[in-house]
Amino acid sequence: MSRLSEERVATAKEIIGRFPRRKSALIPLLHLAQEQDGYVAQDAMVHIAELLDLAPAEVYGTASFYEMFKFHPVGKYCINICTNISCQLVGAWNLLHHAEERLGIKSGGTTQDGLFTIEDVECIAACTEAPALQVNYRYRYKVTPESFDALINDLESGKLTGEVPPHGTLASVRQTTTAAWSNRGVEEQAQVDAR
């Protein structure tokens, strides 16, 4: 929907400065866009293309390689329920169907209030704790229909606000650096050009 905000453009420029080649900053900038809107908007990809001197098709080509970049609005909480073999054996389908009923949406859908999206996903590397899910990539283990309902209630009531930030939010150790580190790539860029 939207281009990057002024503040994020400043961050983007700082990130670009770290790399000898501009286009190396592509993935970090896509994260910035997803943080802003909860998904990577079409205009944001055009904006990133301008910032990196790429064609929008190149930005889209790279972005679409990654499942975790979304190209349509998703809920504030994106719940990934693993349906791969270990989870499947201990009731992942039951869990998924329960979740679909509880929230009134199908897998891949988003609730009317824009709060939840459910997706069935492949292995999330938590087989020993099956069945497992992630909410905005934070794990919940050995999930039962009851604990799922409790999770939804907690998310709705805001109990988990500190623990589970909205979809798209970057890790707490943000990708910003101190002044001493920024523009480290610039000198090298001159060398690349000189080749």
């Binding site: 079409q42 098709a57 190149e58």
Partner: peptide
């Protein structure tokens, strides 16, 4: 020098595609 088409998506879904509307 007109990179207006690119591989998009991944694996079995990989396809050559333009940017939407471009």
């Amino acid at each position: 020098g007109d990179p207006l088409i690119s591989f998009t998506s991944r694996g079995n879904n990989t396809q050559v595609m333009t940017f939407p509307d471009e």
